[in-house]
C-alpha cells in the first residue's frame, strides 16, 4: 500500500482519535480520556517532528520516542498504523486474544521502542538513550511523553535531577497536563504547581503550550533544544477526553469504554469538528 510520506497533523490527529475510539470500544478497554488529551501532541510529533522510518522501524538514525503513559497506547498504535508502520487493519485486533497490540504499550509492535505500563519508567529509559547518543556522538533525539499524575513517581524526579548534570539537550520531556489523574483532579491529589518553576529550578529549559493548538505545538517542537546544553521540557496544557463532549474533563472516561451508541455519537462529533 502506498501512503503519503507526510500527513497533515490535523488529519493525523483526527485519524488517531477516530481509530482509538473504535479500538477501545471494541476491546472494552480503559483510558480513552488520556488518549484524546495527547492526540494532538502525537499527531504533531508523527507528522514531521520525529524522524521516523516506517519501512525500517529500527533505523539507526531515527528519533527515539518513549510513551511512558503506556496505558494510552491506543493513540500511539493508531499513529504508527496511520504512518505505515503496520497495516491499519491490525488496529482491529487491539486487546484481542492473540493480538500483539497489548493494551499497555508493547515493544513487540513495530515502531515502539519500549514497553511501559507501570508509571515512572519511561523518562529514566529515555535518559539512558539520550546518554548513549551523547557518548557515541550521534545526532538523534530521545523523547519521553509522560502524564501529569505520573509525576507523583519519584523515579521521574531522579531522572529530572540527573539529565541537566550531563547537559543532555538531546532529551525531550513532554508532559500531557490534562489536570486529571486516576482518582481525582491533580490539584486535589498531589498539586504539581508551580510545575514550570519546579522544572526550571531543576535546570530544565521549559516551554508551555496549548496542547490542542497544532501551530503552537509545531512551533515549540521545531525549536528543540529550547536552550543549548539543557534538557527540554514541553508542558502541554490539555483537556482530558478532548474532542468528545461527553468525555471532556470527566474522570469516568479514564476507565469507561464507549458502547456502540456512544461510539457512534463520538465519531459523529469528530466528523463535525475535526481538530
Amino acid at each position: 500500500m502506498v501512503r503519503p510520506l507526510m500527513i497533515p497533523s490535523t488529519d493525523l490527529a483526527a485519524g488517531i482519535r477516530h481509530h482509538a475510539l473504535r479500538m477501545v470500544s471494541a476491546a472494552n478497554a480503559s483510558h480513552i480520556g488520556g488518549v484524546l488529551s495527547m492526540a494532538d501532541t502525537l499527531a504533531v510529533l508523527y507528522s514531521g517532528v520525529l524522524k521516523v522510518f516506517p519501512d525500517q522501524p529500527g533505523h539507526p538514525d531515527r528519533d527515539r520516542f518513549i510513551l511512558s503513559k503506556g496505558h494510552c497506547c491506543a493513540g500511539v498504535y493508531a499513529a504508527l498504523a496511520l504512518r505505515g508502520f503496520f497495516p491499519l487493519s491490525e488496529l482491529d485486533s487491539y486487546g484481542q486474544d492473540g493480538s500483539r497490540l497489548m493494551t499497555h504499550i508493547s515493544h513487540k509492535v513495530p515502531g515502539v521502542e519500549f514497553s511501559t505500563g507501570s508509571l515512572g519508567h519511561g523518562l529514566p529509559f529515555a535518559l539512558g538513550k539520550a546518554l548513549a547518543a551523547r557518548r557515541k556522538g550521534l545526532p538523534w533525539r530521545s523523547f519521553a511523553l509522560l502524564s501529569d499524575g505520573e509525576l507523583d513517581e519519584g523515579s521521574n524526579w531522579e531522572a529530572i535531577l540527573l539529565a541537566p548534570q550531563h547537559q543532555l539537550d538531546n532529551l525531550v520531556l513532554i508532559i500531557d497536563y490534562n489536570k486529571i489523574q486516576s482518582l481525582g483532579a491533580v490539584s486535589e491529589v498531589i498539586e504539581l504547581e508551580p510545575l514550570r518553576a519546579k522544572l526550571e529550578a531543576f535546570r530544565w529549559a521549559v516551554r508551555e503550550v496549548d496542547g490542542h493548538n497544532h501551530a503552537d505545538l509545531h512551533a515549540a517542537l521545531s525549536s528543540l533544544p529550547f536552550s543549548k546544553g539543557q534538557p527540554s521540557c514541553l508542558i502541554t496544557h490539555t483537556t482530558k477526553g478532548k474532542g468528545v463532549d461527553y468525555m471532556e474533563n470527566q474522570i469516568a472516561w479514564h476507565y469507561r469504554a464507549p458502547n456502540a451508541d456512544l461510539l457512534a455519537k463520538a465519531l459523529a462529533q469528530l466528523e463535525q469538528n475535526p481538530s
Partner: peptide
C-alpha cells in the same frame, strides 16, 4: 570516562537508564 557514569543515590533511575543505554548497544 566515556563509559562510566555516577547516577547518584537514585537506583530506580540507575536501572532504568542502564536499560536505555543497553538498548543502544552497551
Amino acid at each position: 570516562p566515556d563509559r562510566f557514569l555516577n547516577a547518584g543515590v537514585a537506583e530506580q533511575n540507575m536501572a532504568g537508564l542502564a536499560a536505555g543505554l543497553a538498548s543502544e548497544g552497551f
